[in-house]
Design a protein around this nucleic acid. Structure first.
Lengths: 122, 122
DNA sequence: TGGATATATTCGGATATGCGAATAAGCAAA
DNA sequence: TTTGCTTATTCGCATATCCGAATATATCCA
C-alpha cells in the first residue's frame, strides 16, 4: 500500500502545515518575505503586541520556517527559504479558485438570476 | 505598506492551511491523490473509524479541497485539484531540509563527533 | 554595575479542535 | 415499506491553541 502510515513524519508534516495555518503567522511570513525584520518592526507593521509576535515567531522558528539572527539588542528574523511564500501563494490560488467555484455554484442554485454580481477578487 | 491586513481573506487562507494541518487529513489527501475513493475505502485504507473519516472529509469539502460525488449508496471523494499534492510535497521538502539542517546543527554542537550517523530520510 | 531597550517566557482563561460512541439520515433492493 | 448498507451528524470530554498581561532574560552603554 502506497499510503503513508500515521507516523512521526506525518506529525512533523502537519506541524509545518499548522505553523502556516494562523492568520497572524501568514502576515508575519509575508512581512519577512518583503524584507527581514526584527521583532519591533513586526510589532509595528502588524500592529500586534510584542509577546504575541514573539510567540508566533517561536512557533515558526521551532519548525525551521524562519531563522533568527541576533544583531546587538535586536533579533533579525528572516525566511529560511522563500519557497514557503510560493507555497502560500499556491494556497491562495486554490482559495481563489474555490471562491470562484462557490460563486458559480451560487449562481447555478439561484437559477433565476445571472452570475452573482459580487465576485470576490483575491 | 504591502503587508496584507488581517481581513477575511487571511482567515480563508488560514482555513486552507489548517485544513491540511491534520495528520489524518494529510493521509486522506494522499489516498485520494492515488485514486478517488468512497468513505468505506478510506476507512479501510487508513484503519480509522468511519465517523472520524467523515468528519475530516467534511472539513476538506467545506474548504473545497475535495469534492464529493454520490454514486448510489456510496459517496466518491476526489481532490478538487491535484495542485494540493504539489503543495504538500513542497512542504514535505521543506520538512526534509529542516531535518537535515537540524542534524547538521546537532553535529556542529557536538563537535567532538563526526556527522551524526542517524540521518533521517523523508 | 545600573539603567534602558529589545526580546522571550510564563500564567490563566477563553476558544477551538479532535476523538469515540451513539445515533441519524440517505439510498437501493426486495 | 422494510431491510440492509453507506455516510453524516451529534454529544461529551479531553486536549490544544490563542491571547493579554505580567514578568523574565538578554544586550548595550554609561
Amino acid at each position: 500500500m502506497a499510503i503513508p502510515s500515521l507516523d512521526e513524519l506525518d506529525l512533523l508534516h502537519s506541524h509545518i502545515c499548522t505553523a502556516v495555518g494562523d492568520p497572524k503567522r501568514i502576515q508575519i511570513l509575508y512581512a519577512l518575505y518583503e524584507q527581514p525584520r526584527n521583532v519591533s518592526a513586526l510589532v509595528e507593521a502588524l500592529a500586534t503586541p510584542q509577546p504575541t509576535i514573539s510567540r508566533h515567531l517561536t512557533v515558526l522558528r521551532d519548525r525551521s520556517i524562519v531563522v533568527a539572527k541576533r544583531e546587538g539588542q535586536s533579533v533579525i528574523y528572516s525566511l529560511s527559504t522563500p519557497q514557503i511564500i510560493e507555497i502560500l501563494d499556491a494556497m491562495r490560488q486554490i482559495l481563489r479558485d474555490s471562491l470562484d467555484h462557490k460563486s458559480n455554484l451560487l449562481a447555478n442554485e439561484d437559477s433565476s438570476e445571472a452570475i452573482t454580481g459580487e465576485t470576490i477578487t483575491v
